[in-house]
Design a protein around this nucleic acid. Structure first.
Length: 400
DNA sequence: TCTGGGGTCCTTTTCCTT
DNA sequence: TCTGAAGGAAAAGGACCC
């Protein structure tokens, strides 16, 4: 198989290019008023001085993404906004705009599937493409097709896009990072040792901070050092399945196909409170949030045409420890009241003496409405109150 | 003033049935 | 009737990704 990994880069504010900018989850921002004044002004014409600064923000939230200029100061994805404000107070803080991302996401994926129909959706801004059967796909090792895709996406959306080309998804994903933004890189099997092995293990999609730490404790820092370990040694230290996978990944081996269709496994809603809440002292507030979460999950299920049997809750205490409880019902449901009742029983099984920072409601064991005996007869198109599909998936959006 | 929200997948534990 | 093993489903937690 020959695979592409493509990720688009969103540059929504050309006048901010070169400036430190972070995009982050800020729910309540007093300075949003500044931007509201320019609601009808084209983005490119909003003066830089109108944008709110990070130092003027006080509240919870993390950075979704940051410009390269901002990264110079040490801020980056997943960092708390307060910490970032210390490192780079002069950075411009922009709110996330999901509707906009979804719109562009849909457009760029349409462009790709018109050229190469075998596309796997990996969130708002990333996809895998199997171009083995695309006419002309092999010209210049895939470079010609990659250029065509870049050009078509830019013409349709104005977005740039980085593409990695390799014999499989694992390597294509790594290759896509070699040449950002708006680059194309090709990795052949012969270049495994020269291009991949010198990289830190973290660059492998599937090795996160925990595993990286364990690897480092064993003196393994690069992918090459990982590849040098015995397969059995890795299995001994990381488990049968994960250990074997680590070994294969280090050798650039990956047989996973490009998956063009998939069904959701669960649908959930969760929220972090503006301040920690107490189950007794803040009962009314908590209850209202809980009900609202159940209603939103139910609305999501109905709009997407699913119903589920396993109802669960998640909560995070003030020390950031989380617990989950769930319960499987006899029948599938997409009804807010039923969900709220089952989730309420789950809540009774956890410690509610401690202060809470997050509450979530989840519905799993999904099936399509109409798929089973007890199914409610309801067409997905008519089920929702909002228009337009909401993609499941990532919030992370590249930007520069 | 730490640390979002929406997912997937995997492992381990627990519980129930045979 | 009691006990224990085996296996499956459900529950809980955790790592990871965008």
């Amino acid at each position: 198989m020959d695979a592409f990994y493509a990720s688009v880069e969103l540059l929504r504010y050309p006048q901010l290019k070169g400036l430190p900018v972070v995009i982050g989850g800020a729910r309540r921002r007093p300075d949003n008023a500044l931007l509201l004044q320019y609601a009808d002004v084209p983005l490119a014409e909003i003066p830089v001085a109108a944008f709110p600064l990070l130092k003027d923000y006080a509240g919870r939230g993390v950075i979704t993404t940051a410009t390269y200029a901002a990264r110079q100061f040490g801020v980056g994805s997943a960092m708390g906004l307060m910490k970032a404000a210390k490192l780079c107070p002069q950075a411009i803080l922009l709110p996330v705009d999901f509707d906009e991302y979804r719109k562009y996401s849909r457009r760029f994926k349409e462009v790709i599937t018109e050229i190469a129909p075998l596309m796997e959706d990996r969130g708002v801004d990333e996809v895998y493409i199997d171009f083995t059967e695309v006419p002309g796909g092999q010209r210049e090792g895939g470079r010609v097709l990659a250029r065509l895709i870049q050009k078509s996406i830019f013409e349709a959306t104005g977005l740039t896009c980085s593409i990695g080309v390799a014999p499989n998804k694992l390597l294509a994903k790594m290759a896509s990072e070699f040449n950002k933004p708006n680059g194309i890189s090709i990795v052949t099997p012969q270049e495994l040792q020269s291009l991949i092995w010198p990289l830190p293990c973290r660059k492998i999609n599937g090795i996160g901070p925990k595993t990286d730490e364990k690897l480092q404790a064993q003196g393994i820092r690069t992918i090459g050092e990982l590849a040098a370990r015995e397969r059995d040694w890795l299995i001994e230290h990381f488990g049968k399945s994960y250990g074997a996978w680590l070994f294969e990944a280090a050798w650039g081996r990956d047989e996973r196909p490009v998956v063009t269709e998939s069904e959701p496994v669960s649908i959930s809603r969760e929220t972090t409170f503006e301040r920690d809440l107490h189950a007794v002292r803040d009962k009314a507030e908590l209850g209202a949030i809980f009900t609202s979460l159940c209603e939103r999950v139910a609305a999501d299920l109905q709009r997407k045409g699913y119903e589920g049997r396993t109802i669960g809750i998640k909560l995070r205490y003030d020390d950031f420890k989380s617990v989950t409880r769930d319960q499987t019902l006899d029948q599938h449901t997409a009804d807010a009241k039923t969900i709220r009742q089952a989730a309420g029983l789950c809540l009774k099984r956890v410690d509610l003496q401690r202060r809470l920072r997050l509450l979530g409601v989840r519905v799993g064991s999904l099936r399509r409405v109409g798929a089973g005996d007890a199914a409610v007869q309801q067409r997905p198109d008519e089920a929702g109150t909002t228009t337009g599909a909401i993609d499941s998936g990532a919030i992370n959006l590249p930007l520069f």
